[in-house]
Every structure is written in C-alpha cells, then in structure tokens.
Nucleic acid binder design. Sequence first.
DNA 1: CGGCGATGACGACCATCTACGACGTGGCGC
DNA 2: GCGCCACGTCGTAGATGGTCGTCATCGCCG
Lengths: 354, 354
Amino acid sequence: MTTIYDVARRAGVSPATVSRVLNGRASVDPEMAARVRQAAQDLDYRPNAVARSLRRSRTSLWAVIISDIGNPFFTSMVRGVEDVAQEAGFSVVLCNGDEDPEKEARYVAAALAERMAGVIISSSGRPALISRLVQARIPVVAIDRQPRGVEVDTVLVDNTHGAEQATAHLVGSGYRRIACITGPRRISTAMQRLRGYQRALKASGRPATEDLIRYADFREEGGYRAMASLLETAEPPDAVFAANNLMTVGAVECLVDNGIGVPDPFGIVGFDDIPWAHLVRPSLSTVAQPTYDLGRTAATLLVERIADPAKAPSTVVLHTELRVRESSAPSAGRQGPAAGRTRSRGTAAGSLRS
Amino acid sequence: MTTIYDVARRAGVSPATVSRVLNGRASVDPEMAARVRQAAQDLDYRPNAVARSLRRSRTSLWAVIISDIGNPFFTSMVRGVEDVAQEAGFSVVLCNGDEDPEKEARYVAAALAERMAGVIISSSGRPALISRLVQARIPVVAIDRQPRGVEVDTVLVDNTHGAEQATAHLVGSGYRRIACITGPRRISTAMQRLRGYQRALKASGRPATEDLIRYADFREEGGYRAMASLLETAEPPDAVFAANNLMTVGAVECLVDNGIGVPDPFGIVGFDDIPWAHLVRPSLSTVAQPTYDLGRTAATLLVERIADPAKAPSTVVLHTELRVRESSAPSAGRQGPAAGRTRSRGTAAGSLRS
DNA sequence: CGGCGATGACGACCATCTACGACGTGGCGC
DNA sequence: GCGCCACGTCGTAGATGGTCGTCATCGCCG
C-alpha cells in the first residue's frame, strides 16, 4: 500500500503538504497542488482511513442495528438510512440484532470499540445498551421503537393511531369478535398497537377482553401459533388485527390451513405492508408505514446530532396509512355502514403500483 | 474514553503488560494478570479498535457488496455471511451496490481506504474493481456472479442447469412458445440462465429464436416491461421463463393487468424463490437457490483465504432445486407427458412450509 | 528597509502492538 | 557453595499513517 510519504517523495514535497492538498484545508500553490494530485494518481494512492480515524478520533462509520434482516420493513428502512449516509460521506455497518438482546449487546460493544461516528438502533428492549452509547458520547438515534428512560433522538410512526384506524375499519366492515395478535410486551410498538386496538374496540362500545389478545414474537411462526390458539377458544373471533407484517402472513397461513375463508367469514388487517401484497390472494389490507422515509429521517437526525452533539433531542412521528384491500372486505350481506370500497382486481393492482 | 495507559497506571504495570494480558499473546504472572483484568473491568476499558487496526495493519471488518438490498435473495445471503462472520470475530459492512457500477466503485474504494479484512462481492459487471482489490492484497470472494478474467474464490449456483430444468418443465407441461426474460448481458448469471433456456429448447427440437428473448434489468419494473413487449409481438408466447425473482413478479403483474390467466393459458417459471410464494395466487413455480448457504459458503471461503492468502482460489457450485407450484401447471387438456403433479391447495401450501 | 501575509517543513500526537533489551531467578555444573 | 547460563517475565521505545499546530522563511508591498 502506498502511503502519504510515497506521494510526498514523488511530488518532491513534504507529507504535510500532500495532506493539505488532499483535504483542501489550507491554501497551496496551484502548480504544486497539481503535482501532488498527479503523484497521488500515478501511485493509485488511497489515504489510510484507519490512520485518519485514529488521529481525528472519529470514524466515518455508522452502525445500524436492526431487529430482523429478514423483515422487508427493516431492509427498506436501511435503504433510506444508507442513501442519506452516502450523501453525508458515511458508510453503514448493518448489524442484525435478530431480536436477541445478547447479539444486540455484542454489536453495541463493537460500535463502541470501533468508535463509530453514530448508531441508529431499533432496540429489542434493553435501554441500558442505549445508555452506554450515550455515556460514551456516541450519537444515537432510536428508530421504530421507543427506548424507555433514555433521552435520545427518536423516529417513530403513529402506532396507536394506525392500529386504531385498522381496528375501526374491521368494526365498520361488520365483524363481531375482533382479536389482536401483538408482539412482545417489552417492545414499545407492540404495546402501542395493542392500545390502539383496545381504544377502537372501546369506541365501538365493545369490551376489549384479554382472551382476544395474543402476545407473539413478531415472526411468521409466532403469528401462525397465535392464530391457531385463537381458533381453539370456546368462542373464536371472526376477525383479527395483527401487529406486524410477518405475523399477518403467519395468521393467514393458519387460516388457509384450517380452511377458513378470508375475508368471509374471517377478516384480517395487518400492521406494516409486505412486498407483493397485491399478488397475494386474498390481497392483504394493511397499515402501511413510510419505511424508507423512516430511515431517511433517522439518518438526517443523526447527521444533525453529529454536527451538534449539544442540541436537545427531538422525536419525529411519521404517519401511517390504512390500505384497504381484499382481506377485510366481506361480501355485501355482512358489510357495515363504513364499508364502501371497490374490490375489482384492476383497482387493487393499480393502488399498489404506486 | 479510557486508554490502555489508564489501565496500566491503575494496575501498576506497563501498557505492554496490559496488552499482553488482554491479548493472551505472551505469558504473564497470573497474579499480575488478575490485577490487570480487575483494573480493566473497574474502568470499563474497551480497546480502541481503530488504534489496534492501525498497528496491526488489518481490521476486523468485512465489506459485503450486493446488488440490491431490496431483493430477498441478497438479504438471505447476507444473513448467511453474517452468521459466519460473527463466529469468526468479524463485523460485516453491508454495501448496497444497487446495480450501479459507480456506486459499487465507491464501495470498493471505501473497502480499500478502510483496509477491510475482506470483501464479498456480487459484482454488477466490472472485473476491474475486483482486480483492484486483489492487487491491494485484500482477500476477495465473488458470490452469485462470476467475474471474468480474475482468479478469485467464487461461490455460484448451477445457473445453466437450473434454467434448463425450468424450461424443460415448461416444455413438458405442454406449452408451445416459451419465451425468456433474462438480465443484463454483462452479468454472468443472466447469460448462464439464458444458455440453460436455449439448451432446453434445442433439446426439445425447437428453435431458440431471438424474438422470444428479452434482456431486462433484474427488477420488477423491467420484468413488467419485458412481458408487455413479448405480448405485443405478432406471435406472442404462451409461457415464459424469467431469470430472477423480481422480474417474475413484474411479469405476473403484467399478465394480471392484461387479463391473461396463469397457468392457463399462460405458464410461468421464475429463477429464485420469493418469500410467501405460497400465499401468491397462483402460487409461483420457481428454481430455488440455497441463498443462506450461498452466504455461509462465501464467508467460510473468506475466512480460509484470510488465514492463508497464498492458497489456490477455489470455486464452489451449489445446487438449485425446481419447485413446481401452480403457475406452470395447466389444466389436464394441455398437459404434456411429463406433467403429473397435484394442484390441490393443501399440498401446495404444505410443500412451501418446508 | 521593515512588516505582514502566505506557504512549506517539522514534529508532536492519536492508541495500540511488539521487538528488543534488561533484569531476576532458578538450576546445574564445577 | 559459588558462579554462570538460560529462560521467563516485564518495561521501554519505536513503529503504524495521517493530521494539524507551530515556526521559519520568502516574497511582496508600502
């Protein structure tokens, strides 16, 4: 590997001058600058980013710690983060926490050891991890999930409102007993979405009883099991609101395996869109999140936080959008007063292309 | 941040001894070692990975440069890479090349600047990028796509055979004019899958004419347009083999929008599975790749290459598996001699759970 | 001729690792 | 029993590569 000394020798200047030319920090004689640049090009010189980081005591790496790389929600989010990072001159280290607090802890340790420039984290629960980052003065942005007891920049969606809207839509479609499959109690999004569900039930004058609620794991398998458990009860539900995309898929699978028709007699709405939802039959009604923007917003906050570590932490809440498709639109006989949408194939496909 | 000097001072030893204790390189008096460890724990000392990297002139980071983070094929692969990296003590920097040679070049430059310990790359064409890495003595493993003119460790699947099998299956199902939507000419997988398609057609005694071939971009949009273009021809096909998952989805969308039934009258088989393929109606027949193992294998090769930079490069070819579902199984009247599978819903769902 | 501004050279510094040297102890041989 | 040698252990210092502050010098202008 060629070093800055090799370039200096070839250009007949000191290493400091080479540094100044390449960083544009101070004014250098144009003729000499050109000579340096030529030498650098001739030798295919690439500054050693490690040495630079050591001297500057800061790197140009971000750690993005997500909960599940297999979930399209997170990959889309990462894409948003990455695009902003790229523009701002940072590289992204993607870390798959896998909903495992221990794995997550390892990644936080790595971020500390590598003295990363910043961390974007969707934490699976432990606020202590985020505290450690804050204590080490590493800029942090929490995304998707709200950490408890720590003051950091945060980007969320209006989980409660989205869940309320989805549940109210099921109520309006005429379903009688609406169940809820949510995530682990320690995760803020799971609890907020549950609260939205409960609020909508109360607003419609129905009791939100515990026997209609299941706490699963935000994965396909968990959604399947929760659905199966709901069907086994003495008085099974006739609709369900599932609190994330993978559990929605699991629940639908369970219904298919049990030969139960969707949307008639059984309605389903899921939180968070899935790709190719329009190709799934019946197409799934979902509460769509602005995943890409979620990532972009978090990244923008991180850039600002790095620029000014002293500024007060802010929380940004983005909006969800209920996308009604086939899975929550029962036949005419059952439809309630609020249910007036088309089910034509063309429309469904068209709305998804956007 | 506490440094090795702080720990040394507190333990009453020299920094060198602290380093020795924590790295286990040389023998140190056990009593003294215990004192050092205690001091390190008291101060919550974490070695500065940047300084370590500079001194050792090697980092513990891998760059994984993939073509499209939105494609589940790659995320599953990355998961395999990551699991092995974790075990071997490396962290993974995920880089989304986005099928854009320029973006890809930037990431390769970053890998060089950061003196990364290794690179796993699914290159969008330019062998020059890989050459630069090899020249800089950075261990490289090519994955999914075969780089031309460079000798590096490579992990591939049997693209030609998989495509041949898929096409032969369409032939056997009784389709007459079978088209092919493949990827850009510069990408090896696109050409190999095209070759498999052509081979199968020749084996069945049909001409593989150019008017049945479209070169798209491996994306949903491209698949849609290619399908539309095939339908506009004077003599449209009645089946298509699509060379990756996203283009398959695009092609199906186009068929739906045009009101053409699948699998009757139009058959389709795609290369590479998609998640929730079993929920899509009609469920899609695909050539499934061992995506996770692809990643694991590449990572294992990289670990070996790092351990022994001198060893001869090897190429590993993994096998694909044709998964017949509904989209290629026409009704009885059309079925050819080779088409004898069930189309029952239960069976289709069951085969997908595995 | 003096002063100021601009530019370049030099060296300290970032945190860690490691080669080399020094010191001490134990064992063996005379 | 004493001395020497060898080995084990520890500390010092230098190296890693780039950045930036300091100082000196040169040239130009007043």
